[in-house]
Amino acid sequence: MEELIKNLKAQIIDALNLEELSIDDIDTDAALFGDDGLGLDSIDALELIVLLEKNYGIRLANASEGKDIFKSVRSIAEYVEKNRKK
């Protein structure tokens, strides 16, 4: 799980061009969206959908399906662990 969380953080930084951040700057339990935490937006959510499909073979139909999954890096990691196809 810790390994997966670390990988996810690296993949998120890369996919969302969070250039000024490093893995250690992202709190595993902090909110990804909204004004606190990383402050991601709707395009970032769509880019996270691509990330899940590309790296873990998980397909989400739309962003609203991802609402609960994309709460924090931990919630993504838990979902990936259960549903990954690669």
Partner: peptide
Amino acid sequence: YYPSPSVFV
């Protein structure tokens, strides 16, 4: 084939 929404915009 992974079309990127952010690049497309």
